[in-house]
Nucleic acid binder design. Structure first.
Lengths: 347, 347
DNA sequence: CTGAAAGCGCTTACAG
DNA sequence: CTGAAAGCGCTTACAG
């Protein structure tokens, strides 16, 4: 007792039975005699014995925990309501299956190093692609993974919406309302989004582009003001300020995240710019605040909670070696029309 | 390779050196020859060797992770913005110290069982008291812990604000504005808050009481309408509805959580009841949404982020065996006056 | 029904 | 500078 934890050896010594028998008493009760078992449980209880979970997990080669990779700084990852919703979805599944959820921030700036040290049965990441460093670490460690908003492939189980179509739809909505001078608030390729090819950002730009093409415009048009931001309220506010000062004088702001759109609405309001009378604002994600901001935000609903839930369910199946016909899941999106989008004023 | 992970034994076999030497190459480079070390690292790299973190942690008897206990159902714990802010604060410290953050939901409804299985170096809980089941499990396992919003004592390191004073101040503010028919939205004693004595709820009620006494009222007065809710938007909405139907016709709602207060404001708005003209609403916590709800909420600011940060810093010190003069930390609160509190209409 | 022994993959005090 | 061995605290196939 005195300062040391009680181990299986203490119970063995105290009862006179072997470690095997003690272990069976807890994990395989029917294998041993009733009396034996009762004695063991009593002694264990008296001594305050709690089997060491790490030793147990180590022996069983498992962790009973799912890891969620947090990109960049905390404020920019779980600080983002959409990411937070995903996390809640994952947490729900963990709770239902008796797992814990391990949040894994970068270790000394390095997410790869964090993955090397992660004590989890599987990982969920955002925007992952097969050729990334972290993915090779996961492969070397034989840890299953699933990506949300990543690059689907046979080797990269994933949960995505059809970003291109969703982006197309919302841009079309904006164009249909009559807007022709538009600010696009895009997202930085951060720790996750690599420079090249089709991450979420590229797919959405493609969608915007397609809608613009239908009215004879493109992303390079002089009436398009393109900005990139980190996905947080603060950068959204700064982007809004730059929009105010831009020479394009957009009549609509199309943001790739509600967080950015909401920051714009708040900033415009503070500056006395009316939404949607002076400028319309639309977003992407449909976080819960979007329904309550004033005016309520027109946006694309992509259920973060569901995505987290589905991703962790897929991950659980992979962990338990279940066969699956499809590991690349498409989840649904939906255009949500609210008051932040209006028609541009006549000039 | 083929399907099996590469272990230290593979490197030993391949290089001809002993496991000890391989281990030193990684953890104690100066103890072995430069050439030896380089050979080992090269082979390790070629074979894709990544030291197994669980084996390493097990051997070192540590976890490199902090646990955060989630009361009740997920939706009611991290679903609560205040709790979420605390979590972000903890996560920040974890990131800075190279730890992960393990979210621990109840295991089959039991938080004690979850604590028995928790693979963490220390735990942070909400509203913990020394005599609770989970606390005895932590003691048996010799796992350090810190409580936020719990019952401070020599045996229960904690981070709290002065709830009684804070509650007194906001109730006084309401009374000073002239209100005399008041609905109080209290919190349920849930998984955490035990029935008896001075949890957070009791301390706040004491504060309310004290302010009421100054104008000759008390919690039992017929002009006080007392309700208990779980701390989530949904229950807040239901409470608002009950207030609408109550015969007391309160002119002010004093809620113990912003989540409840905001739900009330939204519900009243939907019902055509004007805040603060028809009824004033004040809250507790100052979550970020409170500044943006319409009208902005008068509340008590208690910085969840800071509490999480301070609690995890204290926990880290305990884990690392540092001496501390005080383990019961008082953090500051502040009355935040906004537009949701007005004077009652003349009758 | 029970026990001795090997194993999970590392670390490290000790000896050489 | 390097290695053999014990240890972290469990589980479980095997033997009796």
């Amino acid at each position: 007792m005195d300062g040391k934890r009680v181990t299986i050896n203490d119970i063995a010594r105290e009862t006179g039975y072997s470690k095997s028998t003690i272990s069976f008493a807890f994990n395989n009760p029917q294998r041993i005699g009733k009396e034996t078992r009762e004695l063991i449980l009593k002694v264990a209880d008296d001594l305050g014995y709690i089997p060491d979970p790490m030793a147990r997990n180590f022996s069983l080669q498992r962790y009973r925990s799912i890891g969620f990779l947090l990109p960049q700084k905390t404020e920019f990852s779980i600080g983002n309501p959409y990411v937070y919703e995903i996390m809640v979805g994952i947490c729900q599944v963990c709770q239902d299956t008796g797992y814990t959820l391990t949040l894994i921030p970068p270790l000394n700036e390095s997410l790869s190093d964090a993955v090397k040290n992660a004590t989890v049965d599987g990982l969920i990441g955002l925007g992952m692609k097969v050729d990334m460093d972290i993915v090779s670490v996961m492969k070397a460690r034989k840890i299953p993974y699933v990506s949300i908003d990543g690059m689907p492939s046979a080797d990269m189980p994933s949960v995505n919406i059809d970003d291109e179509t969703a982006a197309y739809e919302i841009m079309k909505e904006v164009l249909d309302a009559g807007h022709r001078r538009i600010a696009i608030l895009s997202l930085c390729r951060d720790a996750y989004f690599s420079e090249n090819e089709d991450g979420v950002v590229r797919r959405r730009l493609k969608g915007y582009s397609k809608a613009l093409a239908e009215v004879g415009m493109n992303l390079g048009s002089s009436d398009i003001f393109m900005l990139e931001s980190e996905c947080n309220f603060d950068e959204g506010r700064m982007a809004a300020e730059r929009i105010c000062q831009s020479s394009v004088h957009p009549t609509a702001v199309v943001a790739m995240a509600d967080v950015l759109a909401i920051a714009c609405i708040r900033h415009f309001k503070k500056k006395g710019i009316k939404v949607p009378q002076d400028v319309s604002v639309v977003g992407f994600d449909n976080i819960s605040e979007s329904a309550y901001v004033n005016p309520p935000l027109t946006t694309v609903s992509q259920p973060g909670f569901d995505k987290g839930k589905v991703a962790s369910e897929v991950l659980m199946k992979i962990i338990h070696g279940e066969e699956m016909n499809e590991v690349n899941i498409k989840s649904g999106h939906r255009l949500v029309k609210r008051e932040s989008l209006g028609s541009p004023a006549r000039e």
